[in-house]
Design a protein around this nucleic acid. Sequence first.
DNA 1: GCGTAATGACTACATCTGTAGTCTGAACCT
DNA 2: AGGTTCAGACTACAGATGTAGTCATTACGC
Lengths: 134, 134
Amino acid sequence: MTATGGTSQSDGGTERISDAEYAVMEALWKRSPQTAAEVCDTVCEERGWTMPTVKTLLARLVAKGALETQPDGRRFLYTPLIERRAYVGTESKRLVERLFGGRAAPLFAHLAENEALTDEDIAEIERLLRELKK
Amino acid sequence: MTATGGTSQSDGGTERISDAEYAVMEALWKRSPQTAAEVCDTVCEERGWTMPTVKTLLARLVAKGALETQPDGRRFLYTPLIERRAYVGTESKRLVERLFGGRAAPLFAHLAENEALTDEDIAEIERLLRELKK
DNA sequence: GCGTAATGACTACATCTGTAGTCTGAACCT
DNA sequence: AGGTTCAGACTACAGATGTAGTCATTACGC
């Protein structure tokens, strides 16, 4: 289960989560279970969507195995079946594989060159490097 | 001009370069100008494509403004109009924006946690950090 | 000069994605 | 019990993407 493409990832599926679907997942990673209406309250204004869109995306995510449903009266409560950290890790690695031949340092170099690193980032990365060397 | 999505990037277009298109761009970043046949020699076996596929992708990239053509007899020589480093930088930043709220350190943390960093990567990152602090 | 082959132009079709509309039935409310 | 509303199920459609086929023209080779 990965986003936006066609590479095999997990759970026997070849689907990825698209950008729009990801927005829905984010809402549910932040707080779940939620109903479709609640998800819409969270994302519709910000994304300019209406309920039909959210319902479609939810249904697709269920079909992809990314969400599970619990009946709650006449509606469903939606819950993620994949962890955000897993998804984020997969997407990160995919980018590194695709654009940097699997090596993280060139990615880092690009971010550094484009001033995408704050002082805080740098401090934190240094800390992580120290831990890595243990 | 960015890949796989719908966000505005440069040259007045809203198109992104898809995965398949990216493979074609990679061939031309490595060596250009090239004819369609030459590109196919480079990518067709590895990707399991045939000439019509390559020709379509080339035409789409031209339409997207990512490639330019020089007539050479009855065929074109294709040349990238965007630099690999620009594209790679854009995609890197996009991932960071999308999944990490614009902060690079969490991305780094994810890669580190998933053992995506080699000793060489670490050494190189440390070197880059030293330069950044100058 | 003639025949051939290469290649761009154009088309095809399936799938995915983005966004939304319609309908029906059952839960909900009075 | 009856009326209403909500939400899932289903549909729609456009654009993007992946992969490939067909055709016509002209460059190329002999």
